[in-house]
Design a protein around this nucleic acid. Structure first.
Length: 226
DNA sequence: GCGACAG
DNA sequence: ATCTTGTCGC
């Protein structure tokens, strides 16, 4: 079987799909209870030319204040291909996370987890590699349909299985899509996301996004200079 | 075959 | 995601 700790050196759709299907069966359902969380991390990646800028930000769960922030620059492995986002974002994301000194109890990733055609989105793949609880939070749907029940959140179903939840966070009319990444239940993932959602985008991801943008601006050549 | 398609 | 200025609204 393919090694979950190493991404493919030569990307091919066939091998990537096979890897995703194999890894999806390794996702652990052991729950990460919100009451046991002390530190939560947000992870995001931004791009400029061929470079990818990963950022990992750790927040104190009780106060939602940033206590640590690390970034990393990598050459983007490949261009964006729908359903294969992990192969593009993981190198920079993992690199940034490895620099953290504080060990987060749970990670919030900007992308789907189980709500993926082969049930292994970026958040799940990331979780397996770092072997930690992860929650997938996406701003758009990749697959599945929203079941129209009136609640604070609505299930995302694909066929007869629930793969995630559309959560109405902040005071937004548009939902965000939450799904299990690794080592957590959908129920806990939703609770944690709602707790962190001062605005539509949960704090950990919001801060990680800003950190990634800043890392990019720093390494970038000033506009009027060339 | 056609359209959809996280970031 | 990224390319980009001002602008409408809470």
């Amino acid at each position: 079987m393919l090694d979950p700790l190493n991404l493919m050196d030569k990307f091919s759709v066939e091998k990537a799909e096979k890897m995703q299907r194999a890894l999806s069966r390794m996702v652990i359902m052991h729950d990460c209870l919100p009451s046991k969380i002390r530190y939560i991390a947000g992870v995001d990646v931004s791009y400029s030319n061929e470079k990818s800028y990963g950022a990992a930000v750790v927040l104190d769960y009780a106060t939602m204040r940033v206590i640590e922030e690390k970034t990393a620059v990598k050459k983007a492995p490949l261009s964006y291909i729908p359903t294969f986002l992990a192969f593009r974002e993981l190198p920079a994301a993992i690199s940034a996370v490895q620099k953290l000194e504080v060990k987060p109890d749970v990670f919030m990733i900007d992308g789907h987890g189980r709500a993926h055609p082969r049930r292994l989105g970026l958040a799940s793949h990331f979780g397996l590699i770092v072997d930690a609880p992860t929650i997938g939070v996406a701003k758009n749907l990749l697959c599945g349909k929203i079941k129209d029940v009136k609640n604070e959140w609505r299930p995302i179903v694909d066929g007869d299985e629930v793969i995630g939840a559309a959560v109405f966070s902040g005071r937004s009319k548009r939902p965000i899509y939450v799904s299990v990444g690794h080592k957590i239940s959908l129920e806990s993932a939703i609770k944690i996301v709602l707790y962190c959602a001062k605005y539509r985008i949960p704090e950990p991801i919001r801060f990680a996004h800003v950190a990634a943008e800043n890392a990019k601006r720093k390494n970038r050549i000033p506009k009027g200079l060339l």
